[in-house]
Amino acid sequence: GDCLADVAMLRCEPAVFGPVASGPTISRLIDTLAASGEKALQAIRSARSEVRHRAWSLAGKDAPDTGGQVVVDLDGVLVMAHSDKEDAAATWKKTYGHHPLTAFVDHGPGGTGE
């Protein structure tokens, strides 16, 4: 997620995600991380790298980096939203909204359909 409210989605699947911290606890963590600056960023990058390495090791020949190539497929769609905001500009389709992007990682030519 990209918003603190998105943690509610994690609570919908306790069997998958386990216990999820409360909103105030998460807010305090975000404040602490923000105050830590570069040290926190390095710790997060290191943790992500370790998790990715572990997951891809478990995937073996089905890992996204098999063969030394990783394909990132970017996909986006216009999400319509009404806006009465001052100086709001319409999209190229003459509507209001935003255009989120999603990235899918697959490996090799043609991919695996993952």
Rank of each mutant, 00 (worst) to 15 (best):
60 G>W: 06
55 A>L: 15
110 G>W: 00
59 A>K: 05
99 H>P: 07
57 S>Q: 10
51 V>D: 10
44 I>K: 10
70 V>M: 15
44 I>W: 08
99 H>Q: 14
104 F>Q: 12
96 Y>T: 04
75 D>V: 04
63 A>H: 08
52 R>S: 14
37 G>L: 06
65 D>R: 09
108 G>T: 09
48 R>L: 15
69 Q>C: 09
59 A>I: 07
98 H>V: 01
40 A>G: 13
32 T>I: 09
96 Y>D: 05
64 P>K: 02
36 S>E: 15
82 H>S: 06
106 D>W: 00
37 G>E: 07
70 V>L: 11
30 I>G: 01
101 L>M: 15
93 K>I: 00
108 G>F: 07
77 V>M: 14
55 A>I: 14
60 G>D: 09
65 D>N: 07
73 D>H: 06
66 T>K: 05
80 M>C: 09
109 P>I: 03
86 E>N: 10
82 H>I: 06
105 V>R: 09
78 L>Q: 07
107 H>V: 01
76 G>K: 03
64 P>Q: 00
102 T>F: 14
100 P>R: 06
77 V>A: 15
89 A>S: 09
45 R>C: 12
93 K>D: 07
75 D>W: 05
57 S>N: 11
32 T>D: 14
90 A>K: 08
32 T>C: 02
50 E>S: 13
96 Y>E: 00
60 G>A: 12
107 H>L: 00
49 S>P: 02
45 R>H: 13
48 R>Q: 10
84 D>R: 08
30 I>H: 05
33 L>E: 12
89 A>Y: 05
61 K>I: 07
33 L>D: 05
66 T>D: 04
104 F>Y: 12
65 D>A: 10
105 V>C: 10
34 A>Q: 11
88 A>Y: 03
111 G>F: 06
108 G>R: 00
50 E>N: 13
32 T>S: 13
73 D>I: 04
110 G>N: 01
67 G>T: 00
68 G>Q: 10
52 R>D: 06
107 H>T: 07
75 D>Y: 10
31 D>Q: 11
53 H>S: 15
31 D>A: 08
95 T>S: 10
99 H>W: 12
112 T>H: 04
41 L>C: 15
103 A>G: 12
54 R>E: 15
88 A>T: 06
32 T>F: 05
92 W>G: 08
65 D>P: 01
65 D>E: 07
38 E>K: 10
68 G>V: 01
32 T>P: 00
31 D>N: 10
72 V>L: 11
111 G>H: 04
85 K>Y: 03
43 A>R: 13
42 Q>W: 04
44 I>A: 11
59 A>W: 10
40 A>P: 14
105 V>N: 03
54 R>Y: 08
64 P>D: 01
108 G>A: 03
86 E>A: 04
37 G>Y: 05
57 S>C: 05
85 K>P: 00
49 S>R: 13
47 A>F: 11
42 Q>E: 11
36 S>I: 01
58 L>I: 14
68 G>R: 01
36 S>W: 01
102 T>Q: 14
32 T>N: 06
45 R>Q: 15
70 V>D: 14
108 G>P: 02
55 A>F: 12
